[in-house]
Design a protein around this nucleic acid. Structure first.
Lengths: 167, 167
DNA sequence: GCGTGAATGTTGTCATTGACAACAATCTGC
DNA sequence: GCAGATTGTTGTCAATGACAACATTCACGC
């Protein structure tokens, strides 16, 4: 169907561009075709997400913090006193995973849990946590600025507007 | 998301709206504030990517195929005879991981590897692989249609246009 | 030619993650 | 008060990404 090139001399790096006939792929020895992958939103979403996260993870490495932990800190800050269940739902973090994640944040004395209910724990930042979060936010802003530069400020805004509605 | 609206009890939302004082958050018992998360492109990218992938993974479950395997099949189809190294680079899949992934695809007789170079292996789909891929692509198209419906066809196109330039 | 360093594919291992199941304690609705 | 749901916890498993080590082969200088 699509490709039938055997061990022909694929090394002709010609100056006169080969015209791809209808239904064929342009011949480019080093370039990879994505094929049908080009029609998948998920693929491109994933590629950019990985790119962004790599920068973000590297950014927070100095504070030994992972993206999920960061998001939890921000949400506790914005919703002091709320329960694990609520925060887990809001961020799409599963119960069990959030419990372990919070244990770690508590061990570092950045959050405190207060039994509010018998079942549920109410979460707040400690003073120490607020201090740390200030520093962390500074790093995160630098990251976001880098991304804006890399993606293009306008494109970044357009993406934000398009993406914000889901969750 | 998770439907938690009890019969009709939680309706004290407009009866006596609590006014947030300056610097405070509006009081809304069930709603979670994202706080500074709202300024992070990566967060929203991730949320949508996870949503899309969940549907995609469920879609391909019938064929016992994971997204990475799917992408490799498509790229082999579009670039028959290319080496593992090339395909790994193109898709951002690490050498070691791609090797194991290909072993699985070979075990299922969907691809064949041909020592082209002494070092490198040239990859092609088998007839069986092409047949399977046809079926797989049908499923993938259904997935993409669902996503289009969920995200909105127009928004989907805009996102594709904005995202395609990276990788 | 020859030899050094790079590339390629493979295997091994480790930490992280997501997903689920099981459980104890507690709450809710009847 | 009771049955069932909720909440947080722990345990386990599979998948993933990351990295190191290795054997084979290639590329390039001389």
């Amino acid at each position: 169907m699509a490709g039938q090139s055997k061990s022909q001399g694929m090394t002709y790096r010609q100056t006169a561009a080969l015209k791809p006939r209808a239904g064929e792929y342009a011949v480019q020895p080093d370039k990879l075709h994505l094929g049908q992958l080009n029609s998948h939103l998920g693929y491109f979403l994933r590629r950019l997400q990985v790119l962004v996260f790599q920068d973000f993870i590297a950014t927070l490495k100095a504070m030994k913090l992972r993206p999920a932990q960061y998001s939890v800190l921000l949400v506790i800050e914005a919703n002091p006193g709320k329960s694990q269940a609520l925060i887990g739902q809001g961020l799409g973090i599963e119960r069990a995973r959030l419990a372990r994640l919070l244990h770690e944040l508590e061990r570092r004395k950045w959050i405190r849990r207060h039994r509010s209910d018998g079942r549920s724990h109410s979460l707040i930042l400690t003073r120490e946590g607020e201090t740390a979060l200030t520093k962390i936010k500074n790093l995160a802003e630098k990251h976001e600025a880098r991304i804006g530069k890399q993606v293009g400020p306008k494109r970044r805004m357009q993406l934000m507007d398009l993406l914000r509605d889901f969750g």
